[in-house]
Amino acid sequence: MKQLARRRSLAALALCSPLILLIVCLKIYPTFYAVFLSMLDRKMNNFVGFDNFAFMISRPSFQLVIFQSVLFAVTAVILKAFLGFVLAHLMHNIRGRNERVWRGLLLVPWVIPLSLSTLTWWWLFDPSYSAFNWTLNMLGFEDIAFLGTVWNARLSVIAVNVWFGAPFFMIMYLAALKSVPEQLYEAASIDGATAVQRLFFITIPMMRNIILITVLYSLIVTFADFDIVRILTNGGPQDGTHLFATYAFVVGIQSGNIPRGATVSLFMFPILATLAFFVLRDVMKRNKEMA
């Protein structure tokens, strides 16, 4: 019996090994290599410890990148989660014959390759020939320089990210909503709950784990976002939209300072890892209690 169990787990290990190898090569090794790189000097000859980190933090231009990244990620994730939640509720409660069609259409932004759809947005935002400004002019409004001023560009970048990411939240929340037993709502309405109270006392607590996991996942992915800014603004105007990833690219690849680039890209890692640890621990605990 023991032998059989050992043979089975060996077989399992053998079958998983290609994936494990892939993860080791493409994830774990580069991560450690990046940590190693971030502790070297520009010529990559001497070990300098955390000097690169200390230097980066002291520079106002990088402080701006930190501010922009946090603004971008936090705002975008909150908006995506909220929009996804609202859309999921609409999909769940307004049931028609075309429900599947609508669901499919709402997923479109998420399925189109991001760089392609961002190019479309770039064209839509164009100051002279864009559909947005044309419409505004038709209605008698002035042109808006969507990508021309710092704050407009920041908001535009966030808007595109929300447009792209909200469907993911919608589909996750829709699945979560569908798994809440109808009888809980019935019991709650008999207990005296209004629609709003049912939302706060039943729906949200029942979806809490999914909400936490999607927000965490999306936060990590959004902090690492590269495509939108790279294509839409390339970090401008006046470096006003740079995120960690695009700034790391500029510093590390374009300016040739690989260790500083690695430092930039690793900046959020400890914070996000700690957040992930606590969120996942809480999710596991609640899973054990509830399901």
């Binding site: 009888q183 019935e186 019991a187 309405s189 008999i190 709950a193 029942m206 609640r286």
Partner: peptide
């Protein structure tokens, strides 16, 4: 239902899984 002043016991109990027994009973 909330204004009918009735209470109902369901076949599959329909207890709120995220609340303690006390909170389940105290909810209404």
């Amino acid at each position: 239902p909330r204004d009918r002043d009735i209470a109902m016991v369901f076949q599959n109990y329909a207890l709120y899984p995220h609340m303690s027994v006390f909170d389940n009973m105290a909810f209404g």
